[in-house]
Design a protein around this nucleic acid. Structure first.
Lengths: 205, 205
DNA sequence: CGCAAAATGGACCGCTGGCTCTAATCCGCG
DNA sequence: CGCGGATTAGAGCCAGCGGTCCATTTTGCG
């Protein structure tokens, strides 16, 4: 019994749904949720109003679907680095990759999840829950990387991967926000370096 | 030659202007900029449309005035702690005060400047500049506290107050965002503890 | 091939939001 | 006390936005 699927989707339907989602995610990342109207999505992709409301019911549901998309996108993008955290060099490569992404988009946009959070957390409880879950998964991915490092003997046994991961993810969020305001990546680099140093403080002798 | 003051303001006018600003700042903090309409401000304070447009010209200017108000509010709120950074206990007291504020508002709202940043930075260049300047002042306040600690001999001479302050402020922003999504202050405390530890690494022997 | 379900086009609606305009009222100052 | 500027009330405009509806076309399947 799936209450969320009032219609059977044909391949064509699924494709249209995907297309709407991708467009909406892009526009909402670029212009914010409030700055993205259903009309924008329509015009951006030659989509009729009925299509959006056929597949998503209302704007709120569309937003939640966008959250899901962005969560997967972020985790997918991070995975290549986090899954291979075998050394401090790897940690630094992860840091550099993040910095590179931000400067390549000229320091705009912030974090796909962070921006949605700031805009939605206080007024859409379900969106907040989804976003919180996304951050939890992100934190877990970092933590698993640190655990792997500990298993390899890079970190001492008394290192706490869970809180190191939480602090790192939190610092990263701040860094992305500061990048967005200041239009440079100095704060991002500084705060990530601080966290890496902190992790290094738990390095095996 | 002040281009910003097309009218002379009488005391009454100044009072009305203040009242509008305070209401708008509160509503925008609670509901976001996009979620706050001029009508909301009107209804909240028995204000007529013409009053808002008489004193602010358009919504964008009102927003910029709100940014100024919030910047002063944040700096004023921080000053009591930052101006007395004479020890690590004082640093921890600052951390505790911040955490206390967030939990007292049940982890909603985030940072007054951070939320505005996320919503405005990418689409209102002047707002972004104002916010960046606000963060710079905030960073300077933290830095000055650290410099004071160094002068008192709490920190070693090789400690770099500027980047420690930047990292701390950046981490704080992340912590406030995570508090907002997760509805608890664990991330905030964890990341601030991490930064305080890092500062402690520069403590005089 | 035919039919039911799915997908789509597009007109339309009601409301809201930013903003304007005019006319009335208030106030300080000479 | 009167005049000019400051202040305010409030009706109203218009574009845009979320959402609806129905007719039409397309698709999958027996």
């Amino acid at each position: 019994m799936e209450a969320k699927q009032p219609h059977q989707l044909t391949p064509k339907g699924r494709a249209t749904r995907e297309r709407i989602l991708t467009l909406a995610a892009g526009l909402m990342f670029a212009n914010g949720v409030a700055g993205t109207t259903t009309e924008h999505v329509q015009r951006a992709g030659g989509i009729s109003p009925s299509q959006i409301y056929h597949y998503f019911g209302d704007k709120k549901s569309l937003i939640r679907a966008v959250i899901a998309v962005q969560t997967e996108a972020v985790l997918d993008a991070q995975q290549p680095w986090l899954s291979r955290l075998d050394s401090f060099e790897a940690l630094e490569a992860w840091r550099d990759a993040i910095i590179e992404v931000q400067s390549s988009r000229r320091c705009t946009g912030g974090c796909p999840l962070g921006s949605l959070t700031s805009e939605l957390a206080d007024h859409d409880p379900e969106a907040r829950a989804d976003l919180a879950a996304g951050f939890t998964r992100w934190q877990a991915a970092i933590r698993d990387g640190l655990i792997a490092m500990r298993k390899r003997g890079e970190l001492r046994a008394d290192a706490d991967p869970e809180s190191l991961a939480l602090a790192t993810l939190t610092a990263l969020q701040g860094g992305l926000l500061m990048t967005q305001v200041r239009h440079d990546t100095v704060a991002l680099r500084t705060v990530l370096d601080a966290m890496i140093d902190r992790i290094r403080a738990h390095a095996a002798a």
